[in-house]
Design a protein around this nucleic acid. Structure first.
Length: 892
RNA sequence: GGGCCGGUAGUCUAGCGGAAGGAUGCCCGCCUUGCACGCGGGUGAUCCCGGGUUCGAAUCCCGGCCGGUCCA
């Protein structure tokens, strides 16, 4: 039982729902059901529970935040929707995501305690229901207050949290207490769990109050030292409740929908029908009973024609999808997501394609860019950062729309091909498996396939379970856990290795003591200057010298809190004193690469735009690579500009500072742009800053070894840019002396090319062009003469009459020429059998003579080969004369 | 990161073990006041690259590269 003082004090009763068996608290003696979907229908549509003047989402959000500020919560700025501080999810799906895992695990203190926030969140789990159910959104704001209770610092818990909710809904919003139901439930997610209240008003869940205090381990609940108040108030849901509109979309996107309807000439939906449908839709799950059946059921309940209902609904649904998805996509792009075929980018593409598909199926023809631009103007006030990314959003949407149209254009051909194939196999239409294959390989949604097939006169039935079939095809494979170099258990008792490479990145040799040797090749020291692989920088190599020998260090890895040296040769004995020497030339080159990477990504960002984020990087010699998010291959001019900017930064010889900072402080000061290299798992993070405090060029969280100043990089040379995936561009570059070698190599090749082409270095291009045109000319001439020669040969060909056929034998080594001769002769004379001999190869060309019996007889005398009706080819062994005789015999 | 599909004239596409075919474009001519259409002729392809199987590979197999798409 989950109880709260405010409920008991106010006279709430605890009851059990006869349908879902949940326990709930209510003031109404006559309330039987829990008040949640699907046990009860919505009761607020057309008649909201209060007449309170809340005119916009902005106002509601502000009232919520102020309400908690007045109750001593610190207001926190919203986090990005892209969860760059986590490696387990792409997008933020709830306000608590902002604090997982570092705060929730207790490793990092929260930015304030208690705090209040309104966090834009994205959830794609119910994406198929958006636009249809009347209440599902892919993007929403979760308004939340959080309190983190530590063993030594208590903030507040169930009683206060419930009272806040009670007061917010009753006093701030003026909802009568008897309208509010608190349903008890259990919440689980992200490895944590706890009891919770679902706050319900007239059938709509408007908030969830989670009391998180368990960790889930092997299916069991383990009490956490930290007790976290995790609440979520749905901004859009509450606004809908207050407005009582037929769907949540009408409430949230009302002004936009009006303008869109006007522009597209889509009539206002009949509010009463929409409202009723929304209520019924809320109570059924179209995935389970099937969408078509759901429509029919609803039509029946409302008392209208099913076909009519569909016609009314389809364009409205399309607009709802447009409104919801376009806001979500805008959030994503503004946060640096580039639509692509993998990663978070795929999710953005998915949403854009869903919009396009729905508009098309509803028969709405309008450029998506214009519709989205219209929406952006509505979003401007609430989301200024979205407005700032307007140009990028529109460009990317336009790009996606064009790609999608391109795909649709290919649809008739693809569908026709699939139909032909199906017919060949004896099927009259496309099977569900065919549809899945078409979607998988070409991205053609089954509805569109059905549409296209119809125009080709074939009915295709789209199965209701299409998407689960698709899922089955992509059944997950077991991911094998990454094996660590050395079993953690074998080094867990050792003290943390002292990291000399951080204390002095320029240290080349050091003295240390051998603490342990595992399996004769893994050496752990008490301290080391060998950098352990991490952050895209390879581990160092070098040597460990000790009295009586030396061992080569070939790799260095972190295992837990110690650093393991992988050695070849006789390892030093445990307890020995060693002198470690690192391969400084290599290491120094890698430092140039690493600092160079930071300079480069910032230069790319400054040239191409703020949507540039690191998508991966590997430092190596002689070349390194840096993958960034960008939607097209940069032009040679852009690359040149990036190089110029990067090298002027090198020349400016900016200082490079490394600071260890508390996570919250660093995030507050620099923002999430810190996390270019991925997740940094620590309470304190290592910040690498290039340039002075007053005007830093670049700041990143990074665990690598860096130079003291950018001048040491020497030079940054981009060698190649390539698109490794949609939305990801790879820069291959080099620095320092490796860059010099590269340039020298280019020069050497240029010199050679000049020599071969007979020009000088200054005019190689001219010389090569000349060569190419000469080659072309020669080719043309060769063709002409070959043609002439073939004609000549054809004319001088002596054919002997054999039976009713003519036989000609010619010796030719050139297959192309032989073909030409054959064209000349067999085309004119249908009775001619032309035999071309070349080496031990033999070809027979005829104009119309069946070659099969000839080949058969030739095989008997050493010929191996075959061919079509009028052509044969093969090799022979033995005497030519025998062969020709056999031929004559076969012909006559 | 993984699965699926594909890569043949400038562009689109057929062929899927036996002489690389069509459409469109381009060039020339005819028709026309001119353009477009129409007609006749011509031009244009290392069948993505490398290896293997075969007498013979665009076609089958293996490995790359590139593109598309779906799923994480």
């Amino acid at each position: 039982m989950l109880s709260a003082k405010i409920l008991e004090r106010s006279g709430y009763l605890r009851k059990q729902c006869p349908l879902c068996k949940s326990y709930f608290w209510t003031l109404r003696h006559d309330q039987v059901y829990c008040g949640d979907q699907p046990c009860v229908p919505y009761g607020f549509i057309g008649s909201p529970p209060v007449k309170v003047a809340v005119d916009s989402l902005t106002e509601l959000r502000e009232r919520f935040l102020r309400f908690f500020e007045r109750r001593s919560h610190a207001r926190i700025k919203r986090y990005p929707v892209v969860a760059r501080w986590r490696d387990d999810v792409y997008l933020v799906g709830a306000s608590i995501y902002d604090f997982q895992p570092w705060v929730t695990s207790g490793a990092v203190p929260p930015p304030a305690n208690p705090l209040v926030i309104s966090q834009p969140s994205i959830r794609l789990t119910d994406v198929d229901k958006v636009g249809r159910s009347g209440r599902h959104l892919t993007g929403f704001e979760m308004m939340a207050h959080h309190a983190f209770n530590y063993p030594d610092k208590y903030v507040y818990w169930i009683d206060e949290t419930t009272e806040y909710a009670y007061e917010f809904f009753t006093k701030e919003l003026g909802i009568p207490p008897e309208e509010i139901t608190f349903k008890e439930s259990m919440w689980e997610g992200g490895g944590n769990a706890g009891e919770c209240y679902e706050v319900l008003v007239r059938g709509l869940e408007v908030a969830t109050l989670v009391f998180m205090h368990y960790e889930t381990k092997e299916g069991k609940y383990v009490e956490l030292p930290l007790k976290i108040v995790d609440t979520g108030y749905g901004l859009e849901r509450i606004y809908w409740l207050l407005k009582g509109t037929p769907t949540i979309y009408d409430a949230v996107f009302g002004p936009f929908l009006d303008r869109a309807r006007q522009k597209l000439g889509v009539p206002e939906p009949p509010a009463e029908v929409m409202g009723k449908a929304s209520i019924y839709f809320g109570q059924m799950d179209p995935e389970v009973i099937g969408l078509e059946k759901a429509y029919d059921l609803i039509a029946e309940k409302i008392g209208v024609d099913g076909k009519w209902l569909r016609e009314v609904f389809r364009p409205q649904e399309a607009l709802y999808v447009l409104a919801d998805h376009s806001r979500t996509v805008s959030w994503m792009i503004a946060d640096g997501v580039i639509p692509s075929n993998s990663g978070a980018g795929y999710l953005a593409r998915l949403l854009i394609r869903r919009i396009l598909k729905n508009l098309k199926l509803a028969g709405i023809e309008a450029p998506l860019v214009e519709l989205i631009d219209m929406h952006l103007k509505e979003l401007k006030a609430d989301y200024p950062e979205v407005w700032a990314a307007r140009d990028l959003i529109l460009e990317l949407v336009d790009l996606e729309e064009r790609k999608y149209k391109e795909m649709l254009k290919s649809a008739p051909t693809v569908v026709k091909k699939a139909l032909d194939e199906a017919r060949r196999k004896g099927a009259a239409s496309l099977s569900p498996d065919d549809l899945v294959a078409l979607y998988d390989s070409f991205g053609l949604p089954p509805e569109i396939v059905a549409d296209v097939a119809k125009t080709q006169g074939v009915e295709v039935k789209v199965p209701d379970d299409f998407y689960s079939r698709l899922a089955a095809r992509h059944a997950k494979k077991e991911k094998q856990p990454e094996s660590t170099l050395v079993e953690m258990a074998k080094v867990i008792d050792l003290p943390r290795t002292r990291e000399l490479f951080y204390e002095d990145p320029y240290m080349r040799s050091f003295k240390a003591k051998v603490l342990r040797v595992v399996d004769g090749k893994y050496v752990v020291l008490d301290q080391t200057a060998f950098y352990a692989e991490g952050g895209g920088q390879p581990g160092d190599v070098g040597v460990l010298k000790y009295s009586g020998g030396a061992a080569k260090v070939v790799d260095v890895q972190r295992v837990g809190h110690v650093i393991v040296h992988v050695v070849e040769g006789q390892p030093p004995p445990e307890g020995a004193e060693v002198v470690g020497e690192i391969d400084w030339e290599r290491r120094y080159a890698l430092m140039k690469m690493h600092t160079g990477t930071h300079v480069l990504i910032q230069s790319i960002r400054r040239v191409l735009g703020p949507h540039i984020w690191q998508a991966g990087a590997q430092k190596d010699i002689p070349s390194s690579r840096l993958d960034v998010t960008h939607y097209k291959l940069p032009t040679p001019e852009e690359v040149a500009e990036i190089e110029r900017l990067a090298n002027s930064t090198v020349q400016a010889n900016l200082p490079v500072y490394v600071k260890i900072m508390p996570r919250n402080e660093a995030e507050a000061k620099y923002g999430f742009i810190l996390y270019q290299g991925g997740v940094v798992p620590a309470r304190e993070i290592r910040v690498v800053q290039i340039g002075p405090d007053s005007d830093p060029y670049d700041v990143q969280a990074c665990g690598g070894t860096h130079l003291k100043s950018t001048g040491e990089i020497g030079i940054i040379k981009i060698q190649k840019v390539e698109r490794i995936a949609d939305g990801v561009v790879r820069f291959i570059f080099t620095t320092g002396l490796h860059a010099l070698s590269y340039i020298q190599e280019l020069e050497r090749q240029l010199g050679q090319a000049a020599q071969v082409s007979g020009g000088s270095r200054d005019n190689v291009v001219e010389a090569v062009k000349r060569l190419a045109s000469r080659a072309e000319e020669a080719e043309r001439k060769w063709r002409r003469y070959a043609e002439l020669y073939a004609k000549q040969l054809a004319q001088s060909l002596k054919a002997e009459q054999v039976g009713r056929y003519k036989l000609a034998v010619v010796e030719l080594d050139d297959e192309d020429l032989a073909k030409k001769v054959a064209e000349e002769t067999t085309g004119k004379d249908k009775d001619l059998v032309l035999v071309v001999l070349g080496g031990n190869k033999l070809s027979i060309f005829t104009g119309g003579v069946d070659v099969a019996p000839i080949v058969k007889s030739l095989r008997e005398v050493g010929f191996r080969g075959g061919g079509s009706r009028t052509f044969a080819q093969g090799v022979y062994s033995g005497d030519v004369k025998t062969l020709i005789d056999a031929l004559r015999k076969a012909l006559s």
